[in-house]
């Protein structure tokens, strides 16, 4: 078993996922079973999207931050492994961002009555999503591997510097905005925060697993290209 650590990690993540699911959905699957989390009084059961929506958003931010650090790493050291990590992190971040901007409207529609209420956080996520899609697009444009890594590292840094400006601009754009959680949104029941923290931790672990696997794949692809290139050379000689 050469992939043993990954398998163990997958096992742990699965168990944690099931635990979180049971805590959140116990009563929606088995009617007599009461779930660990209480039902929110004003939003009803749909509020439970929260347990996966917010951890996804935080994981996406983490992913983009890691990509930012990896981009700086590439610029300073010029080792392709940093670029592999940056690519992996951006790709996973985009996946989580996609989850956020799809589950967001599914939550907003029953609670606020509109699919897209231009909530600052949701809008920030949308702009982030666009930014990093462009990053992935840039990757497909360059043919020279080294140049691709260099350009993407530059964009990885620029895009992340844009994140706080985007966030505050979107926030101040309307003056007031709907607050659901956080300061001014009232507290959160202790059991809710247990389930939430459990979900968050599980998502971070999942991110770590995906990052390692995706970066390894990118690394292997580089290795493969190198092998192919050297093959070509010996074939010509």
């Amino acid at each position: 078993m050469k992939n043993f650590p990954a398998l163990v990690l997958i096992g742990i993540i699965s168990v944690m996922m099931i635990a979180v699911l049971a805590a959140v959905f116990g009563d929606t699957v088995v009617f007599s079973f009461s779930s660990y989390v209480p039902t929110e009084s004003s939003m009803g059961i749909v509020q439970r999207i929260f347990y996966f929506h917010v951890p996804s958003a935080l994981t996406a931010f983490l992913a983009f931050f890691v990509a930012f650090v990896a981009s700086i790493g590439y610029i300073t050291t010029r080792r392709l492994i940093w670029d592999n990590v940056a690519l992996a992190s951006v790709e996973i971040g985009v996946i989580f961002c996609t989850i956020v901007i799809i589950t967001g409207p599914l939550w907003a529609r029953p609670v606020w009555g509109s699919w897209w209420p231009w909530d600052p956080r949701l809008t920030t996520t949308l702009i982030l999503w666009l930014l990093y899609i462009v990053y992935l697009l840039l990757r497909t444009y360059s043919e020279n591997r080294e140049q691709q890594a260099r350009f993407c590292a530059v964009l990885g840094i620029i895009a992340f510097l844009d994140v706080p400006i985007v966030y505050f601009s979107v926030r101040w754009w309307r003056g007031v905005h709907p607050m659901v959680f956080g300061s001014g949104g009232g507290g959160i029941a202790p059991r809710m925060s247990h389930a939430f923290l459990g979900a968050l931790f599980t998502f971070f672990l999942l991110y770590g697993l995906l990052l390692v696997q995706r970066a390894r794949l990118a690394y292997m692809e580089d290795e493969f290209e190198e092998l192919l290139a050297s093959e070509h050379e010996t074939g010509q000689a």
Binding site: Y141, S142, Q147, F151, L155, D162, I165
Partner: peptide
């Protein structure tokens, strides 16, 4: 300028990054 067909990419890059501006 350095990538092939990069002129397609410039508007997308520029307009996305300058949204807050």
């Amino acid at each position: 300028l350095k990538v092939r067909r990069g002129h397609l990419l410039l508007p997308v890059l520029q307009l996305t990054v300058t949204i807050p501006l």
